[in-house]
Simulated scan of single mutants.
Amino acid sequence: MNVIQEINNVNDKFATKGSKLRIEKRGETLNIRGSLPSKNDKNDFAVQRISLGLKADFNGLEEAKKKLQLITLQLELNQFDWINWVKISDKKEKKEEFKFLTRLNDFEKYFFRENKNEYLTSTRKTTWRSSYKPYINRMISIQNDTKTDNLDNIFTTTLKTYKEGSRSRKQCATSLSVLAKFLEHKLPEDWKLMAKGYGLNKASFRNLPTDEIIENLWENIPNKSWKYVFGLMATYGLRNHEVFFCDLSSLTNSGDKIIRVLPTTKTGEHQVWPFHPKWIDKFELCELGKDPELLPKINRDLRVTTLQNIGKKITDQFKRYSLKIKPYDLRHAWAVRTIFYDLPDTVAARMMGHSVSLHTQTYHHWITKRDQQQAVNNALSKYKKREIF
Rank of each mutant, 00 (worst) to 15 (best):
M1A: 14
E6C: 09
D12K: 10
D12W: 05
D12N: 15
K13A: 15
A15S: 15
K17P: 04
L21D: 02
L21K: 00
E24H: 07
E24L: 07
L30I: 01
N31G: 01
N31W: 02
I32Y: 00
N43T: 09
F45R: 07
Q48D: 04
I50T: 07
S51Q: 12
D57T: 10
K65T: 15
K65E: 15
L70Y: 07
E76Y: 14
Q79W: 03
D81H: 06
I83L: 14
W85E: 08
V86A: 10
I88E: 15
E93N: 15
K94M: 14
L101W: 09
K109G: 00
F112V: 08
T121H: 06
T123F: 00
R124L: 14
S131V: 01
K133F: 11
M139A: 12
M139E: 10
T146G: 00
T148I: 10
T148W: 02
L151H: 10
K160S: 13
T161E: 15
Y162F: 12
G165P: 02
G165R: 09
S166F: 07
S168W: 03
R169S: 03
Q171T: 10
A173S: 15
L183K: 06
H185P: 08
K186H: 11
P188Q: 01
P188E: 08
P188N: 02
L193P: 06
L193R: 14
K196N: 13
G199K: 12
L200T: 05
K202R: 12
P209S: 09
E212T: 13
I214A: 11
W218E: 06
E219R: 12
K227T: 02
Y228T: 00
L232Q: 06
L232F: 04
A234P: 11
Y236S: 08
L238S: 05
L238E: 02
R239I: 03
N240I: 05
S249D: 02
L251N: 01
N253W: 10
K257S: 05
R260W: 01
K278Y: 07
E287C: 08
D291P: 02
E293T: 15
P296N: 09
R303T: 13
R320N: 12
Y321V: 04
L323P: 03
K324H: 10
I325D: 09
I325F: 05
R331L: 13
A333I: 05
W334Q: 06
R337S: 11
T338P: 05
T338A: 13
I339L: 04
V347H: 11
A349I: 11
R350S: 12
M351D: 02
H354Q: 03
S355T: 15
T362G: 01
T362Y: 03
H364M: 13
H365T: 13
T368A: 15
A379D: 09
K384G: 04
K385E: 12
K385H: 06
